[in-house]
Design a protein around this nucleic acid. Structure first.
Lengths: 133, 133
DNA sequence: CCTGGCATTAGACAGATTCTAAGTCTTAAT
DNA sequence: ATTAAGACTTAGAATCTGTCTAATGCCAGG
């Protein structure tokens, strides 16, 4: 299964070092939207000598290469999203947890009325509380 | 006209100190979405001995009392929005400038399909570039 | 095996925001 | 007016997120 990761990285032109594989392993297999610090904590648990700078370097490299997307929607920090395809986000006001909402579940209409802007990207940000299931 | 500001503040239960009036005067009369630092710079121009902490205290107080809304959509900093009524936002990717988009200009449909969430608030965030006019 | 270049590291640095401790101003009661 | 209590402001320290730097490590190609 690390072979898969190595292939993913090399296909994107990323040299697969041990640290990068460890970051990819965590980040690509989580449903959360982790911040750099969360990645540091999680990856560091299995890889104790990894440096904070490497986490940042690696995450930024992954974003640059299109493996991750960066979100500026949370309070106070940047979070990373392994889902590259467009989708919406729901933010739990109480916990700050971010959840994905499928692109096709919501429709935004009348976008072409925005004469003054060239829109390259959009999403709906919802806030509220998650119902217990 | 400061009388108006004083009334606005006192009506919200905010004691109208000179510093708070100065902040309100700037923040409520701008079309921008200023960061705390911009507020500090602008207000400080006419009120040189104001402290950064007071700016933060005052802005946070205004948010708490419902006079301002806080936006976590820009890169690296928090910005404040004097428009309390719901509306959408467009972010210019090149400059980071934020522009308001009227609530009624866009419609989001199918919100009631979100069974797992109690949505208290939502907005569309658009990115791209502003066309020159 | 060298060597060059990329990756990693620890720590310094920077910017944004909050905290702290002290001082100052208001307010309301005297 | 006086004053005490509480609210407000201040400067600077502290914290947190993120970037930069300089030194070191590691690996592939010759």
């Amino acid at each position: 299964m690390n072979d898969d990761l190595i292939k993913i990285l090399t296909d994107l032109g990323i040299q697969p070092s041990a640290q990068r594989i460890a970051v990819a392993e965590y980040v690509l297999h989580t449903d959360e939207h982790p911040s750099a610090d969360q990645v540091f904590a999680q990856v560091g648990a299995n890889f104790p000598m990894i440096s904070r700078a490497t986490i940042y370097n690696t995450l930024n490299l992954f974003v640059e290469k299109g493996l991750l997307r960066v979100l500026h929607i949370a309070e106070g920090k940047v979070v990373f999203d392994p889902r590259i395809a467009p989708h919406h986000h729901f933010i739990d006001d109480a916990t700050g947890a971010i959840q994905d909402i499928d692109w096709h579940q919501l429709q935004v209409s009348n976008l072409n009325s925005l004469k003054a802007f060239e829109v390259s990207d959009y999403q709906v940000i919802l806030r509220g509380k998650s119902k217990k299931e």
